[in-house]
Design a protein around this nucleic acid. Structure first.
Lengths: 218, 218
DNA sequence: TAAATAATCAACCATATGCTTGATAGAGAA
DNA sequence: TTCTCTATCAAGCATATGGTTGATTATTTA
């Protein structure tokens, strides 16, 4: 910056015979969404490591200056991707069925995790990237914590309900078990399990333990 | 900055009285180790995203060309860091005690995980980075898989032994439970648990389940 | 229809980055 | 001591990268 750039003598004025494609001009919110979605896919594929504003612009089919018009800095773009991720997790959660048993609610957690794994692999990938970046990025750390806390709370309530109605072990350490469930889903995200079946079997072992005996523990 | 850099009139060549520090020249293996360890710490702190050959060279106190003399490409350096990680995981595992019970061996897995978490946080961080990068990097994917497989096998053997001697539930799905244990440790690495106590409680809930009843489930 | 607004672009800028080149000098071998 | 080997460095190269500037033009408003 700070340089005088007055004399723009470079021939940027193609006299007459230049094929000038008509500019496609979109509303800010539409264009922004396109940009965010491209960035999202890029992160899913190559991680933050491979995120380049130029590449995103090219994917969207716009000049990189236009991208910076919508998202002044790369961090602004990343923040928008974070919001995108968060809202999609909210939107695509299976809603609780009225009168569903605690055991069914637990099963629902499992099914949701599996749904994302099988049908929203990009969300899983981006989530993984965000968790990885969390230790280094305050904004992302906050987002991840919000997700985990909300999730932990859902699980905690299911466990509490099961204990109250007697369908889950009364002597279960609820906090610990809640974290256990989150961990198992994280095992899926981190690809600790060898297969979907392995994950299902693991989750159901855990479910057995939660329900087992219904009153007394080993 | 922004200045033309040709005429280096700044007194960088004081005619004759230049304080020339003697070169510290080390054997290739010693210097290589220093480089790898610096890279390791850098990845622990800033991830692959923040890994810069120049920065590593500066940390070690050498010219970046020297770094490239020891590690021709950045990938070579990363490969060396991978080997470093792997060998440290091997070296610092608590050795199995002769005649130790299956339950004790299980406890040992827990203690090892906690040891790394509390006393080798950099290894945990680097491990996390590697797992994150695994989907995009064949070499790292292979490394991570080796680590997981070896670990899974250790756990599998412990579970088998416990079942054989009757101290663990006979009807336990061994593969699933093994993955469950790995997952829980992964929960620690991914910071799903809210505290070390939370992790300990979770792990012990799981241990209870493994031992509970010792014969019949559900 | 004319003026104001704002989405878009081409061309740049400053700096970062992986890696190379050619010369220098420390350390062990002869 | 002299010679060879190689770890080391200063300088540089080519490209990548986040971001800026000033003009242009589609759309909306007056």
């Amino acid at each position: 910056m700070t340089q005088a750039r007055k004399t723009k003598t470079t021939g940027s004025r193609p006299t007459s015979s230049k094929r000038v494609e008509p500019r496609t001009r979109l509303h800010a919110d539409v264009r922004s969404k396109m940009i965010v979605e491209s960035a999202f896919r890029s992160i899913a594929k190559d991680g933050f490591e491979g995120l380049r504003t130029r590449d995103i612009a090219a994917l969207v089919g716009i000049n990189s200056a236009t991208l910076h018009h919508h998202f002044p800095t790369k961090d602004d773009l990343i923040a928008a991707v974070a919001i995108h991720l968060q809202s999609h997790f909210r939107l695509e959660k299976t809603p609780a069925v009225a009168g569903e048993s605690a055991a069914d609610a637990l099963e629902r957690q499992f099914k949701d995790a599996l749904f994302y794994y099988q049908h929203r692999p990009e969300m899983i990938a981006v989530y993984r990237e965000f968790v990885s970046r969390a230790p280094r990025d305050r904004m992302i750390r906050k987002l991840v914590q919000q997700l985990h806390d909300g999730w932990r709370q859902d699980v905690g309530e299911i466990l509490k309900r099961g204990q109250l109605d007697g369908s889950f072990r009364a002597d279960l350490n609820r906090d610990a078990t809640g974290s256990l469930i989150l961990s198992v889903v994280w095992g899926l995200i981190a690809q600790v399990f060898q297969s979907v079946d392995d994950f299902a079997a693991g989750f159901h072992e855990l479910a057995k333990w939660i329900k087992a005996g219904q009153g007394s523990g080993g």
